[in-house]
Structure formats: C-alpha cells, structure tokens
Amino acid sequence: YETDHQDYCEVCQQGGEIILCDTCPRAYHMVCLDPDMEKAPEGKWSCPHCEKE
C-alpha cells in the first residue's frame, strides 16, 4: 500500500530502516534521533519536530 511518508531519514537523508512519525510525513533512523533510540517505539510515536509543536 502507498503511504505519504518520506522514504528517507529527515536527519541524514538516507534510506534504510526508518521509523515513521504518526503525526507528520517525516521518517527517521533510530540512531539519528537525539537521544537515539535503542528499539522501535510501540504504539503511536511523534517525531521531535511534532513533540515541539
């Protein structure tokens, strides 16, 4: 199925295993987040940009 999420990391602009924000189209590698994540979040997750809003 098609999503509106970007298929690359917002921080480093590379693809790969990325996690998707449930609020906006941004996507991130877990290691590119500050602080980085050990494992993928369970349930709904909002990226740092959305958390600030």
Rank of each mutant, 00 (worst) to 15 (best):
K52F: 03
K39C: 03
Y8M: 11
G15C: 02
C32F: 00
G15L: 10
K39F: 02
C50F: 02
E2T: 15
Q13F: 10
Q13S: 11
P35H: 11
M30L: 07
C24S: 01
Y28D: 02
E38T: 01
D7C: 00
S46Y: 11
E10Q: 03
E17A: 07
E10A: 07
A27H: 04
G16H: 08
A40G: 07
K39V: 13
A27M: 09
K44A: 11
M37H: 06
C47A: 01
E42L: 09
G43Q: 09
Y1N: 10
T23L: 08
H5C: 09
D7V: 06
E38R: 10
K44G: 14
C24L: 00
I19K: 14
K39P: 09
H29A: 00
M30C: 14
D4R: 10
K39Y: 09
V11W: 11
C47R: 00
T23G: 06
H29C: 12
E53M: 02
Y1W: 15
C9F: 00
E53A: 06
V31M: 03
C9E: 00
R26Y: 03
K52H: 15
P35N: 11
C21A: 00
C12I: 04
P41N: 15
Q14K: 11
Y1C: 14
E53T: 01
Y28M: 12
E42V: 13
T3D: 11
I19A: 13
C47S: 00
D34C: 12
D36L: 02
C12R: 00
E51N: 03
L33I: 04
P35Y: 15
K39A: 10
K52V: 07
M30R: 05
K44E: 13
A27K: 05
D22H: 02
E38M: 01
G43R: 09
D22T: 13
M30I: 11
P25I: 10
P41S: 10
C21V: 00
E17F: 06
Q13K: 02
Y8E: 08
H29V: 00
H5W: 05
D7E: 12
C24I: 00
M37I: 11
Y28F: 11
H49Q: 07
D22W: 06
A40C: 10
G15N: 04
C12S: 00
K52D: 03
C32L: 01
Y28R: 05
M37Y: 04
H49M: 03
Y8A: 10
P35F: 11
V11Y: 11
P25W: 05
Y1V: 15
